[in-house]
Design a protein around this nucleic acid. Sequence first.
DNA 1: CCGGACATCGACCGATCGGCTGATGGCGGG
DNA 2: CCCGCCATCAGCCGATCGGTCGATGTCCGG
Lengths: 213, 213
Amino acid sequence: MTDRVITLLIVDDHPVVRDGLRGMFASDPGFDVLGEAAGGVEGVELALRLDPDVVLMDLRMPAGSGVEAIAELTRLGARSKVLVLTTYDTDSDTIPAIEAGATGYLLKDAPREDLFAAVRAAAEGRTVLSPAVASRLVSAVRRPAVPAGEALSAREREVLGLVAKGTSNREIARELFISEATVKTHLTHLYGKLGVKDRAAAVAVAYDRGILG
Amino acid sequence: MTDRVITLLIVDDHPVVRDGLRGMFASDPGFDVLGEAAGGVEGVELALRLDPDVVLMDLRMPAGSGVEAIAELTRLGARSKVLVLTTYDTDSDTIPAIEAGATGYLLKDAPREDLFAAVRAAAEGRTVLSPAVASRLVSAVRRPAVPAGEALSAREREVLGLVAKGTSNREIARELFISEATVKTHLTHLYGKLGVKDRAAAVAVAYDRGILG
DNA sequence: CCGGACATCGACCGATCGGCTGATGGCGGG
DNA sequence: CCCGCCATCAGCCGATCGGTCGATGTCCGG
């Protein structure tokens, strides 16, 4: 079914990783790496120009987030399938990436055979997930109501960030040019969303989910 | 001064990264990769057996921490220089690694020319640090007294862990079979050590330094 | 043997937090 | 056009926190 050569685009901010992937795929005549990009923005441009079968996409990059790049490609109706290849597997990364339109999600510590197989699968439009990611996803989907956690609003994240720095409500109010009452409202709301009952726990959950630090 | 071929050992849990490094150094006749290891324990064994000039060491690995591996090699008086090559540059990683005896500390997003230069420098025993790491280090060293942070005692870490879960002082007291006054004492102490003024900031700093999460 | 780090406890007090109730206005989707 | 989400604000109050005195006992290392 995959007799054709599969064309690839590599998007990763680490030269070492780009080289590793390039070399890896160069050793197999079934793959052809068309190009590389170091950031999301550049990745989108190249994906549109080169029209690869599969885009190998890192998520956390200085020059344009991977999730945004995926969303952009999806929005533009690009033909390329996106296979996320990252070090991290936190909820805050995986779910948005899948939602944005990623065809697969692999962790970088996957053996190369798995990687090859995943790229072939992705080229055919099949979804491929690392076992760890898959189990995360099901558990995340299984409790969509209260326990999990809706996304924080921009303002709530802003307040939470200051809380993590030890800023008091009054100081936060001054900092953001709002009243202390509003700060408390934001806090009460984000406590509910994060499923906690005080600021210390909120900071902890935020770190766990990658919202902070 | 470096006419000799420099021998290398690669220690990293990611096959992709190992391949990337191997390929990169294979393209330059001035380097010879003697072997690879996927974890700290295996890394130490191979370093002792192969006696490479330079060990490229990742820090966070499932099979044996990089810092422990470095400390082990130092303790055993291995001839090999260790060059840390990692994605992270937090205090909790860099400083212990340097203390353990690493000759250099580079981030994986370093351009390959820098990497080559760093390996040559490490082979000669010269210290090489990423600019970002270097600035971290100086600022960490410059304030050794109060601001930086001594290590938390076991009891303090225990209390802090409960704080991160949203536990109140009274509940912590019951949980640990001590009085609320004692809990407050532990907290006051660890606030001082972490350089913060409330529990939320303490949790944040703890996450940043890898004490939690 | 003494100093210092650690762990334990008590009491007091001002500052802060979190919960509650309720209100206003903007903005976007159905 | 109305509903829901977001952001804004007010006042009240009990609970909790953080700071500051001081005190006791252990254990380890110099």
